[in-house]
Nucleic acid binder design. Sequence first.
RNA 1: GCCCCAUUCGUCUAGCGGCCCAGGACGUGGCCCUCUCAAGGCCAAAACAGGGGUUCGAGUCCCCUAUGGGGCACCA
Length: 497
Amino acid sequence: MPTRDRPIRTRYAPSPTGPQHIGGIRSALFGWLFARRHGGQFILRIEDTDQKRSVRGSVEQIVASFDWLGLDIDEGPHIGGDYGPYVQSQRLDMYQGWANWLVEQGYAYRCFATPEELAEMRKAGRGYDRRYRDFPADRSAERAARGEAHVIRFKMPLAGTTSGIDSIRGEVAFDNAQLQDAVLLKSDGFPTYHLAHIVDDHAMRISHITRAVEWLPSFPLHLHIWHAFGWEKPQFAHLPVLLNPNGKGKLSKRKQQFADSQGKSVPVLVHEFQSAGYLPEAVVNFLTNIGWNFGDDREVFTREEAISRFDLQDVNPANSAYPIAKLDWLNSQWIQRVDANDLARRLKPVLESVGYAVDEALLRKVAPTLQVRLKSLNDVLRMAGFFFESWSDFAAPSAEIVIQRKMDASSTLDILRGALPLLEALDNFSPEAQQAAMSAFAASRGLRNGAVFGSLRAAVSGQKVSPPTFDTMQILGKAESLRRVKLAMAALENTLS
RNA sequence: GCCCCAUUCGUCUAGCGGCCCAGGACGUGGCCCUCUCAAGGCCAAAACAGGGGUUCGAGUCCCCUAUGGGGCACCA
């Protein structure tokens, strides 16, 4: 039985198949949270034993994704560690050694069945018929020595049941008669997952194997392999997976975007979250809320707060539809929560990405007006991009934008004509002072505030929707604001003549 | 086909036999606030898959069915 007091070490062991998918992060996150909770280590190991599936550059993408999300890795191919190498293709001799050891000990055997024979057996409806399970050891060794292609298979018990403890769902039992003699070592000398992960998890002192539910069916196989080796077993936690937003099928790796019920496109790759303007804090918060909950109805919390409460036993065993709509809300919550200067820092690259030369001082003034208005960092473009356009190139907006509801060109012109000298007379151009003057003006003319404020908003921003009018004018400055009001007046005069 | 796992509002979830005529959140609808857009506040509609047991008592335990997910590769 595993002892409870060994150091907590968990790992994420992806295949290097390209950009990091959010489903993998979800699984990794729970292992990471658990390790951090217990002051243990979190390890990255690359499982590249299937040569055909390996994609160059994958490790860099995976590491970049973890970096962005702030999930720190203690040991891995990019940083090394005491139990390396952390790439399976660099550990081949270990797997071969242990596979042979299992054969020598009688726990495994060489199988010379050809791919054609296997295909026939499959067609016949059943799996591998164990035809080499009891093949004489001397003849087996002889054929291998002659260089005949073969794999090594594990001898599963033929009867009885195997049960194991899953940290999330408790005891799980399997009928041994249903299980197959799985391949441990392929004919190309590479191990399968079944062999490799056990050799590595043992060598790397992994205390808790956290992996997706699709591994549950091979759990009994793994238990027997651990037993054959005689190694202390880790604890196992088979994590639920993310389903598509409609609840149908596992969240796809192939379809990178698809429409949810609102017709929005849905990010599934980590870099897509980044480019869609989500904060990493929000993404982590979002993922943490699926299949686990904070415990006191809190939905918004930091990763540190989550660490302080996380336990694998509290993970909900059921798979869940990908509740992507909640991410937008969470993102807006996080945008409101971060410090305004921090928000400015995060907004800068977004503005630069569309070609603005960003004045940081200006951005720091704009950011506070945006905190309650952005769902995504990218919304800054639509809401406040005009601040970063060349001011001298500012063109008066069309009358259609300046003229407010129930107003016309001439009444709007009247408003601007009346407002201009009042604003000009202000020594203090604070939003409060502006608002006091403009409210009084509106009242004196019997106008709605909206008619006055809205005309000014459009005049100075060129937009129907913007940050509050008087904040906008303060940021633009009195001179620039008044210049724009005059521009709008001139444009309106033109439409009237 | 066989095996495993799961099943509470549309969705994410709380609930580990009585505190539940089921709580929170997102989304949706309404109202309030309001210079636009938001944010915020208040309110509303909305669920224990079905059927059998066990028990004084079941969303909570057991069984069956249904549905969903996964597995049955020399992929992980």
